[in-house]
Design a protein around this nucleic acid. Structure first.
Lengths: 151, 151
DNA sequence: GATGAAAACTTTATAAG
DNA sequence: CTTATAAAGTTTTCATC
């Protein structure tokens, strides 16, 4: 992967609907080799897919919360159930098993404190194995992207 | 926004390169009104853009860390400098000003513990106003999307 | 909303320099 | 890599039911 491939990745990361002709011009290639490189990056799995970014406020979920969850560590089946239930919630944008004091970090979209309380009490606290949670409410987003920008 | 709009959003959120004809078939419309709805959703800003998702491991940054940062609260200019430096780092995927014990939550891509130490010591700890950090290392991703899925 | 049609553009493939 | 060509498919607009 050379500097031209990285320019292609940066361009498509920012704006996936560029036409091949426009992309080629931006990265300083003619359309034909540019197209071959994009194909190669897709087939190599460097480009994993193309996604529409939606405005979560316009979907009725203007706020972002980061919920850390501490679980009981006894029961494998219980944890599996917890994980699949978390992943299935539409308001959950991202979820990780992590190192540290808490076991999971969950990013979710909610409508205000009322929406947050509903998510926590009606959904997360009803899952098996949840011992304790701690939440940071998003005040302002400094940066939001999908993957690191190729340096 | 009706149920058909939501189906359009779910489809494009999952796969932004669908042709209008294919999208129309999936959501149960003929191509012409489907196209008009997509246009409307774009113009209303519900669809904010289209982005390529890259494989961060294939970019040499296989690991994800969540770094919480506590800052000095004295100096506005210092905080502005901290924020713009964080946003400019290519390994920083997402960053939020949040409520709670820590002031910022930063998600970044790194190459192992060595890459993490380099990011922390050579970049983040050299920024002005950083008092203390706490990091959770991502062990396994349960769910990764870009915006909440329209319910 | 469905259907149909037309022009402009894009994708994809291939060949030659 | 560049340039060129070409067929197939797609986007976009628009008129009509």
């Amino acid at each position: 992967m050379d500097a031209t491939d990285k320019r292609i990745l940066r361009a498509l990361h920012a704006e996936a609907r560029l036409t091949n002709a426009e992309l080629a011009e931006r990265v300083g290639l003619s359309p034909s080799p540019c197209w071959a490189r994009v194909r190669k990056l897709e087939q190599a799995g460097v480009i994993r897919g193309y996604h529409a970014a939606l405005d979560q406020a316009k979907l009725g979920l203007p706020d972002t919360v980061i919920i850390e969850v501490m679980t009981e560590k006894h029961d494998e089946a219980q944890l599996a159930e917890f994980e699949s239930a978390i992943a299935a919630m539409p308001e959950v944008i991202e979820a990780w098993l992590v190192t540290g004091e808490y076991d999971y970090v969950i990013k979710a979209a909610v409508g205000g404190t009322a929406g947050y309380e509903r998510l926590l009490r009606e959904k997360i606290y009803r899952l098996p194995g949840v011992r304790h949670t701690r939440t940071a409410f998003g005040i302002r987003c400094l940066k939001q992207s999908y993957t690191p920008r190729p340096a």
